[in-house]
């Protein structure tokens, strides 16, 4: 049972990292639907770098760097060129899926390194996640920079006349978002499930993306959502641990996605939509181009 809970919390940490990055992205008004792709890149290149250097640190740094690069790429398309952000994000996802399969194929198999030391039965990543949640909550709601980020996401022209560089803030957000997604991917492939396989993420990035919407762009709620989905995910992998013999595991594996659909239906209700609409960054997904 403890094992089950610990694994759930580890899974939750991965959702938290990817989700926090996307949350900051979106608070700044940029939608990156391609975080699955960024995570795949981070996971694959992190895996390769770690295996070749026999160092987790090198692996994690590689993941952060590729995440940064892809975040900036998405930023270039959506901020500088002002193209449709969904199209750019989808492009990054498809590129991630294809390229990582091609690059990672020779590395198929286990990582073959010593496990990362745990602290109190949990990896350092889980604690890092919790610290980041609190830090980002403080940053977004209690600091000047946070106010600037939120303003840029709500109404960039207001931010501009208040003397804030919309472009700089948005680039900062996408850079952070990309790094977090890359890092989340590496935590998956280096710690949570250290085996490289074709499309091993199976939609974790998309779940993180959905979590951001459910969280009403609040890191604390995001953390709660990540825990819920971490448990659900774990349940879908080993249902026999908790509910032995009940339903096939293929049914359980569907559960997180079914819950996602349920939540989507829930948030489409009028009651929720008014509250949700108030929290949603108003300029989300809209390029800011000056004439």
């Amino acid at each position: 049972m403890w094992q089950f809970l610990a694994r759930s919390l580890e899974a939750a940490a991965i959702f938290t990292f990817a989700g926090l990055g996307e949350l900051v992205d979106q608070r700044g008004g940029i939608l990156n639907v391609g975080i699955e792709g960024v995570m795949l890149f981070g996971a694959t290149l992190g895996f390769i770098a770690a295996q070749n250097s026999n160092s987790y640190l090198v692996g994690l740094v590689a993941a952060l760097l590729i995440g940064l690069l892809l975040g900036l790429l998405h930023g270039f398309f959506s901020i500088t060129l002002g193209v449709d952000q969904v199209v750019s994000g989808m492009g990054i996802w498809i590129a991630g899926l294809g390229l990582t399969t091609y690059i990672g194929n020779p590395y198929t198999g286990p990582l073959g390194m010593e496990r990362i030391q745990t602290i109190g039965g949990l990896s350092p990543f889980f604690y890092l996640g919790v610290v980041l949640v609190v830090a980002l909550w403080f940053l977004l709601f209690k600091t000047s920079l946070g106010l600037k980020i939120r303003s840029v996401g709500e109404n960039p022209s207001v931010a501009e006349v208040s003397g804030i560089s919309v472009t700089a803030i948005r680039y900062g957000c996408v850079a952070f978002g990309g790094m977090m997604a890359g890092f989340a991917g590496a935590v998956y492939s280096l710690y949570y499930n250290p085996v490289w396989n074709y499309n091993f993420l199976m939609g974790w990035g998309f779940i993180a993306l959905a979590l951001v919407f459910f969280s009403m762009w609040n890191p604390i709620i995001l953390q709660a959502g990540a825990l819920l989905f971490g448990i659900l995910w774990q349940l879908s992998l080993n249902p026999q641990l908790v509910l032995p013999g009940l339903l096939s595991r293929y049914v359980w594996r569907m559960v997180p996605f079914a819950i996602t659909l349920l939540v989507l239906i829930l948030i489409s209700t009028r009651w929720f939509r008014t509250r949700w609409g108030a929290a949603k960054p108003e300029a989300l997904g809209r390029p800011y181009l000056k004439e």
Partner: peptide, 10 residues
């Protein structure tokens, strides 16, 4: 400005 330059949600 005539068109309000304020962030409505803040």
């Amino acid at each position: 400005h005539q068109h309000r330059k304020l962030v409505a949600a803040h």
